[in-house]
Design a protein around this nucleic acid. Structure first.
Lengths: 211, 211
DNA sequence: CTTGAAAATGAATGAACGTTCATTTAATTC
DNA sequence: GAATTAAATGAACGTTCATTCATTTTCAAG
């Protein structure tokens, strides 16, 4: 630990509390929605008086902004990290990555989708920019696959949104311990996506010959 | 007009106001979310004092319940009515119907999706039941198509949810007057859906021969 | 052991909330 | 045109909201 790091982390209690605030806020915002959650409820979950929250976040809105921006940056960072073993088909990589990440962090995903409208305009713009960056990843994969003749799609942007909407809907109904494992879900959705973007004349699971 | 109808509609001012309340509430709830909208805002939109709202709806929660239940019943009724000219492929009929209805009533759809958690448990159960009925329509179409050999799908229920999520995402980004007409959207999504559920060996736009 | 700052307390702020209610307005019925 | 009644008013209810703040506690650093 460096000297400056030691200084800034000297009082670690505060950082821990801030983290507990985030955890509690995520749970509450996901369950009831930003507007329906009070600072008192969050404070109560953390085990602290309402006023103490303001030692860690200047306003309630800042808690939401913090959650959403760090979620988006986690998402983009995780995508970057997921590509180190680069031998997988990019579309498969994206679909599997998206499903895994969104099932792992269902609450954050839900908030990031539902609470866009609860953000102040400037915070909204910042989050929206990150969301577009993420969409572009899939659009680029599709465009590249189209020009290579692997996919056939009328409109890559619309298809991007269709696929992401399809995948992002999973956490709204999927529950662990049900009939289907996470791996089953990945397989099912990957199959749907592959077929949806396949060249019009042929569909086969692993890239069959075109007619 | 019958005698009894004349009696119940004698004071039509109230029904008009109730309708204006619904309109205002739909706009506000869709824009800001149920919890973030105050009765004062709705009253202001209607051009009336807050207390006057309570002549028409017993509570704020009842406004939401009214909106969501009547939306679901409109949806199911509209589906029933859409099938009178019965010569269309059922899947195409469903996709086109769903897109049209959801683009026409984007605000209501948005509310019905976003504000489920704002409903009291009993109201939630009532709405959820209707939502399931709607899902079942598509599931049945898929199952029937599978046993007829027209579609190939691993899991009809999951595929139902995937398709509905895909379609329901449209109103979140589609705006009239953009590059794409509603009819373009229908065509694009219909193509995606058709291919996604097509028999694994062959895809062709209008039901080509299987290998 | 003292110091100093971060963290938490506990009480208070004014504003906004959903809802109630006595009263007035307006329109229909007999 | 008097009686009736739905509809709207305007003020108020008690409660809860996000936020502030003087004070106290906690605890590592010197």
């Amino acid at each position: 630990m460096t000297v400056s790091a030691a200084k800034s982390q000297a009082r670690s209690k505060g950082l821990e509390t801030a983290q507990r605030v985030r955890k509690a806020a995520v749970k509450r915002f996901a369950a009831s929605g930003y507007a329906a959650v009070s600072m008192r409820e969050i404070a109560n979950d953390v085990g602290v008086q309402p006023g103490a929250l303001y030692n860690h976040f200047p306003t309630k809105q800042d808690i939401l902004k913090d959650l959403m921006l760090s979620h988006m940056s986690d998402l983009l960072a995780a995508w970057g990290a997921s590509g180190i073993s680069g031998d997988l088909d990019p579309l498969e990589r994206f679909v599997r990555f998206h499903i895994r990440f969104h099932l792992e962090r269902a609450d954050e995903v839900f908030i990031s989708f539902m609470e866009l409208r609860s953000l102040d305009p400037e915070n909204f713009a910042a989050v929206e920019q990150e969301r577009r960056r993420y969409e572009t990843i899939l659009t680029d994969i599709l465009i590249e696959g189209i020009s290579a003749g692997r996919y056939s799609v009328d409109n890559a942007k619309v298809t991007t949104r269709a696929i992401i909407a399809m995948l992002t809907g999973i956490p709204t109904w999927y529950r662990e311990g049900g009939d289907l494992s996470e791996s089953d879900i990945e397989t099912l959705y990957l199959d749907l996506v592959r077929k949806a973007v396949a060249p019009s004349s042929t569909v086969s699971p692993k890239g069959g010959r075109m007619a």
